[in-house]
Amino acid sequence: MAVSRLNGLVEGDKIRVFSAGNEIDAQGVFIRVDNNFLIWVDSFANINITSLDTISIRKVS
């Protein structure tokens, strides 16, 4: 079952995604969470599916 919210993030929010403290991409857009995976679009318009077990997410204000 897909979830469109994650800790206050809603579809379309700009985010930064980090793995081991290093930024994966300069900036992206939150789409949704599905089965413990973050679905997001990076700055190159690539759709990414990333396990929430290995990343942290920060909302860009």
Rank of each mutant, 00 (worst) to 15 (best):
M1C: 14
A2E: 09
A2N: 08
A2K: 13
V3I: 05
S4L: 09
S4M: 08
R5A: 05
L6G: 00
L6N: 00
L6D: 01
N7C: 00
N7M: 03
N7R: 03
N7F: 06
G8H: 05
G8S: 07
L9Y: 08
L9N: 01
L9V: 11
E11P: 11
E11K: 14
D13L: 02
D13K: 00
D13T: 06
I15W: 03
I15R: 12
I15L: 05
R16I: 08
R16L: 04
R16M: 11
F18N: 07
A20W: 06
A20Q: 12
A20V: 02
G21A: 00
G21S: 08
N22R: 15
I24A: 10
D25Q: 09
D25L: 10
A26M: 04
A26N: 13
Q27M: 04
Q27T: 07
G28A: 01
G28D: 00
V29P: 07
V29Y: 08
V29L: 11
I31R: 03
I31V: 07
R32L: 14
V33G: 13
V33A: 03
D34T: 13
N35I: 02
N35D: 13
F37D: 08
F37R: 05
L38D: 08
L38H: 14
L38K: 06
I39C: 09
I39R: 07
W40P: 14
W40H: 15
W40V: 04
V41T: 10
V41C: 08
V41D: 02
F44W: 08
I47W: 02
N48A: 12
N48T: 03
N48D: 10
I49H: 11
I49P: 03
T50P: 01
T50C: 00
S51M: 04
L52V: 02
L52E: 07
L52A: 04
L52F: 06
D53F: 10
D53I: 02
T54V: 15
I55Y: 03
I55D: 06
S56R: 07
S56H: 07
I57W: 04
R58Q: 12
R58L: 12
R58W: 07
K59S: 06
K59D: 02
V60W: 01
V60R: 09
V60G: 01
V60I: 14
V60E: 07
S61C: 02
